[in-house]
Design a protein around this nucleic acid. Structure first.
Lengths: 339, 339
DNA sequence: TAGATTTATGCAAACGGTTGCATAAAAAGA
DNA sequence: TCTTTTTATGCAACCGTTTGCATAAATCTA
């Protein structure tokens, strides 16, 4: 068996409590004993058992990050990864561990519920897609600290969450395009049913409105989940007499389809039509032409979530807070100024 | 405070041990008491406290997955993500939790060492890039079960690891190209210093050798970590009189650069030169032309690692085992049969 | 120098479970 | 009917720490 606090105590000739106090940096222990205990700990290679410690402290020093397994995308989403990395970094700085769990449907008790009920973690970070009323109620009932990643569909004012400022993103993109001289702008999105898509559209409309441009609803194209449909939509758009001067894409797959459609329509970018996209994925700069994109500091997203959660854990009456991470533009060839 | 085993015991009028036995499915309890206890548990919404349980059992029911933070790629690597997902899935099936930690350098005690020494987890899965002799020694000294993800540089015969069969991958790719009628094949790789690159080259050489083709060492091009260098290399290759008929790329960035270089050299793919790549990334099928790739079932990779680790945990003298996950070919336009 | 403080340490009860051993009651065997 | 066996349960120690309270020793105060 591993060496315990009692072994150290015996070796030095003090009580376990004294050793415990030294381990925890209690000031009341004389320098002399402290030194002896430290020496013994080093010699016997003592390391406190986290389970015992946590049981006594009533804390796990772990937090759970929930991944929505139904969303095949999430885990393979480079975007999300930076956030996870940030979360782990912050937690580690505060002495917490990161526990990852998939949110699978389960008859009686889902893995997430288990985490909470069996007190395996001190708090959870959950994606807005797994926020259900049932889960929220459970969390509240157990006084369980939690932070939502992404603006939730429900309880948005009564929960803490962190999201990308998608409205701002849509707005910035459109303003940039207008500033470059493009007067009519289409927006091709993945699925209008999501909160973030709606927010982006709102930003798009806002920017157009502020510049006195009307919104042509024909220019808002919803792929309804099938991003490859963007190809057909753009081919059609390209052959109409009333084509937009620029197109904004909700993600990289759409952007790729748009570029392909324009090439096949013998239109050049940005001369015949400018293209801009959300999601700064690694390939954006390799595209032909390199794509201007709305970027998001996803590290900050995770960092903010983790920091907020730790504050909540350490201070029970920390107030709910909603944070938007500002978007940034990365400008490349695909939106060069219109001549 | 939460309801404990004692509360249930009191309510039903039995001892805590009886409740414990019911919770753990001990057969010796009469159906009558069992039913009463279950009823009470439901009524009082009892859930065993994992910390207490684990302390008593001397087990954490968690395993640690180490991520190499120095490798900026890993976390954003879609490839790796599927493995993580697989690992989590297997662990969950066995009642284990997944704890993720970054392997940061640290003066005295790295996060990974801490995990082990403080017994926060029952075993670890580590990337070959964080396998050091020091860590191996620590693991051995503590009888700590571990599995390595990727063939390690050291101790490869005395440890358990799971890796992609890169030799086979190189071999399959070359055999496919030869079968399609391409007689001379270049191989552009990221960095020959890595084990997996060396294995791929070995497979490449093997396939050429078996087909009686000599290996032209000028055709093995090492980008030395800078994948964008592939562009220049291919432009040069394209203008030489002795150009290969096909080129195999070690990853998607190289493949992208190669396609770009060929396009800029006014060569068409596959007519003038076939292109094939490792790494089936989502964009491979959208490339122009769609890329043939060597694919790997990364889910299986993680699954195997997790399964092996659990076996090791549950059976201390489970023997070391090295598993190679077979590669598969996904054939698209870029390697169409040469006319 | 006696009493009040301060400093340093130990005792023992928690934290919430598990489990070997003892034992009472019930069932089976002779 | 009296053992023997089986079945069902309780007792108490244990897992490795933490911590409130008690207390002895050392230092200070008047």
């Amino acid at each position: 068996m591993a060496v315990t606090i009692k072994d150290i105590a015996k070796k030095v000739g003090v009580s376990p409590s004294t050793v415990s106090r030294v381990v925890n940096g209690n000031a009341l222990i004389s320098k002399e004993t402290r030194d002896k205990i430290f020496a013994a700990m080093k010699e016997m290679d003592y390391h406190p058992n986290s389970l015992a410690r946590n049981l006594a402290n009533g804390s796990t020093y772990a937090i759970g990050l929930v991944i929505d397994a139904r969303d095949d995308n999430t885990f393979s989403n480079a975007f999300f990864n930076r956030s996870v990395y940030a979360i782990e970094t912050v937690l580690q700085q505060h002495g917490y561990n990161l526990l990852i769990t998939n949110d699978r449907e389960d008859e009686n008790c889902s893995p997430v519920e288990k985490l909470i009920l069996e007190k395996r973690v001190d708090g959870v970070i959950l994606p807005s897609s797994s926020v259900t009323q049932k889960l929220i109620n459970l969390l509240r009932k157990n006084d369980f600290p939690f932070i939502i990643l992404g603006e939730p569909e429900i309880e948005k004012d009564e929960t803490s969450w962190v999201d990308v400022d998608n409205l701002l993103g849509g707005e910035m993109a459109v303003k940039h395009l207008l500033g470059q001289g493009y007067r009519s702008i289409a927006f091709i999105l993945e699925n209008q049913a999501t909160v973030f898509a709606r927010n982006r559209v709102q930003g798009y409309r806002k920017a157009l409105g502020e510049n006195g441009c009307g919104v042509n609803t024909d220019y808002i194209i919803d792929c309804k989940g099938n991003c490859e449909a963007a190809y057909g939509a753009v081919r059609e758009l390209a052959s109409s007499q009333d084509k937009p001067e620029a197109v904004l894409c909700a993600n990289n797959v759409i952007a790729y389809q748009v570029l392909r459609a324009l090439r096949d329509s013998l239109m050049s970018v940005p001369e015949d039509m400018a293209v801009m996209s959300f999601d700064n994925y690694p390939f954006a700069e390799y595209m032909d032409p390199p794509l201007s994109v709305v970027d998001v500091d996803t590290f900050r997203l995770g960092e903010q979530a983790a920091t907020d959660l730790i504050k909540k854990i350490q201070n029970a009456d920390y107030e709910n807070q909603q944070t938007m991470i500002a978007t940034e533009l990365i400008l490349r060839e695909s939106t060069k100024r219109k001549k």
